[in-house]
Design a protein around this nucleic acid. Structure first.
Lengths: 215, 215, 215, 215
DNA sequence: CATGAATGAGTTTTCATTCAT
DNA sequence: TATGAATGAAAACTCATTCAT
């Protein structure tokens, strides 16, 4: 009873504290070994209190996923520009830059949750939607760029998907398998592609290039 | 102690059967929910026998990882050609083609195991080595191609890493997040890159292209 | 982790009930065959509750030993006299008298626990201390008696050790090997020694004895 | 079938090796933690072979007790003298002297087995008999001494029991509870008693003593 | 809100024992 | 004799969850 209906509240301080504790516990133990006790240990309160706020463990996890996804979404929307070129680069940077260690736990936690998707319908629905939103965001930027004539006329969704998958693959290898710098290298590769192939070269410049290449 | 030395034996029929059962159980339940009982359920013999062959659950998992890695390695080596271009395409195909449903469980299982790496040193060592071997294989092919003059003079390890990460990222999204066809699309994109940018265009053809593009 | 800090609390009703249950289970099954289930069977609550209060079987056993030792210590201190002769006899009686059957299980249980000492450091430390305290108690009484001039000037620690070892040896044989009455006979022998050899015979009495023996 | 009837053979080399292995395993792990595997580990052969020779674990333990008891009995009979005084001292020495570490494991092992007696009828019968034989041996020596006029006319069984219990009590404390030297001190005390109180002082000597004490 | 106590189902692991070879 | 493989029962321990306070 009481607040046990797993509502979507944010303002409740305990709930936020639980989300934070869950994040820390997840980073520390990994999803496969994550117990309610582990979360309670990161929280300063008792195990029972977790159940007061979330009826079941699954409820808590699902709420945590909502929390995480919401946070990513809000990060992604921050921008002060309209220029598709800048926005696309910001998009890539958002997924690839950041203090290494702060990123690490976060990325691992997100991958762990995603890997539960194949075994949990509710989780799958939430995360599938999240993935699509992420790709859509990039696709939207690319479409805008094409319309504005600053990007070549590529297939927006496919290019967006490529960009997103590549970044995620690199993050996975860096964070999970110790491929130090893989994310950074992937970012550089993607920027090279964006600047070198996706962005339309103004006629003036292009002719300049052609002349150069003639040499 | 019995036979629990966790050796690398094949030949022992029960051990192979256990590896198979583990594979099926892992695909069915996911790593986080994988119990010895789940494995025993996929096995025709008793639960105790699992412990007769592998002292602990962890030993069994590690043996399974060895098994899996060994199998992937042997698949990767199969080729009848010397031509770097063909070999690189084969490499990509090996990670991206295959009957969809047979792949699915396998890919998920492997990702799940990889995500345990940050929390388990032994696993991390095995999988890190495996990742490096996979990238090295591609890098080797690219080097061969550059030496043979059929590939442009790129940085082999970086390109190899890009290719591998991209494929893995696409597989992750397809299999885990329901991005149907993402692997296939990524393959096509990579082949386009290989054929269109990596492979050296013979002078003759090149001028032909130039002429064409003039039209 | 819960309340598993294995503290020395009494007051907690469950903990006391667990100690009692352990005592009964130990007397019934013997240490070598003592399972958590056996203890739970003597307990009115569930098996899990044992683990709630004591993280491991070993913790429970160690707590039980503390409990037992504390109880013996408090028994040993009960006396209303200052006279070393009476106190020494009380000391002997405390270890040798008592309703036979109530003692039986208790003595066996304590011997069983002691025999784990060679294989368990923590147990050894506790029990070694207990043994020394028991011998020290007797040695203290003897010292007091010597100082007070009521005991002959013997070596207190050695006599104390002899008394204690003899009583324990007799108890062992009676309770473990069916030497009925051995404890009682040892008590009588010890009293004979105390009265006849340890206690100083006042000169007056002594001459009386001499005269008697002259007859 | 076969040799599985748990017969009393000695000549079978394997059986002797098993008894030795059992002894070592018992000294190493303690009775409460003694598994068939532990015995097999000390043996150089397989666990199954233990069951070939002894149908059950209990059979093996009982056979081991027979073995141990027989060995002690044969040690106790070794003597080259008829003099009850010497024989009694030899008796005491047999239980109290010997290289400390060789004794240690042996004594612990025997005590551990004895403590199973209250929980196992067959064991109890064997060990009770053994205990009585040991006490009877001493009682016999004392009786012989009394008859021969070299010992005071004491109650043989009671004195024998006192001697035996005291020695065992001291051994227990030394070996189990770390009372270093307790056995040796008890031996000295017992010899003092034998020489000073049990042995008849020839009239001549006695008067000499009396004169001395007159001083 | 918050907790400690309590539970039952389930987990990994151990172990004596059996059996085919 | 001797073994490795196999098993079922039971062991210790974990854990999400409930409940009275």
């Amino acid at each position: 009873m009481g607040a046990g209906e797993t509502s979507t509240d944010d303002e409740v301080p305990s709930r936020n504290a639980i989300m934070d504790a869950t994040y820390r516990a997840l980073a520390k133990h990994g999803y496969a070994d994550l117990s309610m006790q582990d979360i309670a240990d990161e929280f300063e309160k008792s195990r029972s209190l977790l159940h007061y706020h979330y009826d079941t463990r699954e409820d808590l996890i699902l709420a945590f996923v909502d929390d995480l996804i919401g946070w990513i979404g809000s990060e992604l929307e921050k921008t002060g520009t309209e220029d598709p070129r800048t926005r696309l680069i910001e998009y890539v940077d958002r997924f690839t830059l950041g203090e290494r260690d702060r990123r690490r736990g976060f990325v691992v936690a997100l991958f762990e949750l995603r890997l539960q998707a194949p075994h949990n319908r509710k989780l799958r629905e939430k995360l599938t939607k999240h993935y699509q939103r992420n790709v859509d965001t990039a696709a939207g930027i690319i479409e805008d760029g094409i319309e504005a004539g600053v990007f070549e006329p590529v297939a927006p969704r496919e290019i967006a998907e490529h960009i997103y998958s590549s970044m995620q693959g690199a993050a996975f290898h860096e964070v999970v398998l110790g491929a130090e710098g893989a994310t950074r290298r992937m970012r550089d590769g993607l920027l090279e592609y964006i600047v070198g192939e996706l962005v339309v070269v103004p006629a003036l410049l292009e002719s300049a290039f052609d002349e150069k290449s003639d040499l």
